[in-house]
Computed example of a mutant assay.
Amino acid sequence: MGRQGQDVVALVAQQLEGWAQSLGFSQIGVADVDLRAAEQGLLDWLAAGFHGEMAYMQSHGLKRARPAELVPGTVRVVTARMDYLPRGAEEGWTEREWKRLAAPGQATVSIYARGRDYHKVLRQRLQALADRIAEVAGPFGHRVFTDSAPVLEAELATRSGIGWRGKHTLALSREGGSMFFLGEVYVDLPLPVTPPAEAHCGRCTACLDVCPTRAIIAPYRLDARRCISYLTIEHPGPIPEALRPLMGNRVYGCDDCQLVCPWNKYARRSPLPDFDEREPLGGASLLELWAWSEDEFLRRTEGSPIRRIGHVRWRRNLAVAMGNAIAAGDVAALALREALADVRDSSDALVREHIDWALTQQAP
């Protein structure tokens, strides 16, 4: 690279953080593309079948750990962190979430999914970041990723200093906990890399201990087939009966391992309105959500990540939660039974199976 090219790269590196902050990102980093040290762990995880029915995790082979093969010409990966805790989250927000989880008749939706679909928010802003780079560097090879391709996000986040990989396998930051999204821009510019992050979990095992389904089978090792986020979002078929009682009132995703993490006392509110809670996702009852027709489900979830699971899986998840509320002796148990029975015969076969299970539940 000539002197002029070096000067351009240095100028981009100097302005990168400022551009990122102006676009709503909390932190920016740059990683190299040598991820060979992560390859064996990925292969072992896939060989154990821990990815469940997420075939896309396996279909790209080791391209997940080889950015230059996934996008030829890539020499660096720009990583970005975007906080998603809603602007209106009050002090003691974790206590509020625990109280909701302890109220069987209420529905719990993962915090990140109560606002706008993060894929859209990050993709647009990462592309805007790439456009800023191009204004200085001229046309350059790049590709934007937001949980949309075989990318080892947590590994890249660790290598670029965004955070370290927590024992729950999520990225953790000393300044922002884990309540953030990650995005990447693969670039063909030899930007200077940022120092990697050091781990600060110590002896803490809170995330392993709290997991309702014991999906975190060991530090840094997750069996997705047991994870409530996987079961309620990625898993297309019947939820294993043994796991249904452990799901409680979680109808989309699960935040337990994040709620219990001591580092999330530093979780930051998002500066963007995109992640504000949409009504009624932060405070609905199971009966209220069960009453949604498919048309209402589509209307209520427009622009939301929830929409992609479809109405059938949504009802499947609700039926499990309603069965758990009945088993817990919730005050609305009779109304829950009636609501389930009323639509049992007209429901999709997958939903009907879970309704039948829910109707067999009895309070102790």
Rank of each mutant, 00 (worst) to 15 (best):
Q4W: 05
G5R: 12
G5I: 00
V8N: 02
V8I: 15
V9P: 09
V9R: 10
A10S: 13
Q15W: 04
G18N: 13
W19M: 13
Q21Y: 12
S22N: 09
L23I: 11
I28Q: 14
A31W: 10
D34Q: 12
L35Y: 07
L35M: 14
L43Q: 14
D44L: 03
L46I: 15
A47E: 15
A48P: 00
F50G: 05
F50E: 12
M54Y: 06
Y56N: 11
M57V: 10
M57W: 13
H60F: 14
G61D: 05
G61N: 03
L62A: 07
L62G: 00
K63R: 10
A68V: 00
L70T: 03
L70K: 06
T74L: 02
T74R: 07
V75T: 14
V75E: 08
R76W: 04
V78W: 01
V78P: 05
R81D: 05
M82D: 04
D83M: 03
W93Q: 10
E97S: 15
K99I: 03
R100Q: 15
A103F: 08
P104A: 10
P104E: 11
G105N: 08
Q106L: 15
R114A: 00
D117E: 11
Y118G: 09
K120N: 13
K120A: 14
V121D: 11
L122K: 09
R123T: 14
R123C: 03
R125L: 03
R125T: 11
R125K: 13
R132S: 06
I133P: 03
G138Q: 04
P139A: 12
G141F: 10
H142T: 01
F145A: 08
E155I: 04
T158I: 01
G161T: 07
I162D: 12
G163P: 11
R165Y: 00
K167L: 10
H168C: 13
H168L: 10
L170D: 13
L170F: 14
S173R: 02
F181S: 08
L182R: 07
E184W: 05
L189H: 03
P190E: 09
E198N: 03
H200A: 14
C204I: 06
C204R: 01
A206C: 07
P212W: 04
A215R: 11
P219T: 08
Y220D: 02
R221E: 12
L222G: 01
L222P: 01
L222N: 05
D223W: 07
R225D: 05
R226M: 00
C227P: 04
E234W: 04
P238Y: 04
I239T: 13
I239C: 01
P240Y: 13
L246W: 04
C254E: 09
C257Y: 06
W263I: 11
K265I: 14
A267K: 01
R269M: 08
P273L: 09
P273I: 08
D274F: 12
D274S: 13
E279R: 15
L281I: 09
L287G: 15
L289K: 10
L289R: 08
R300G: 01
T301L: 06
S304K: 03
N317Q: 05
A319E: 09
A328Y: 05
L336N: 04
E338A: 13
D342L: 14
V343R: 15
V351S: 07
E353R: 15
A363R: 05
A363E: 10
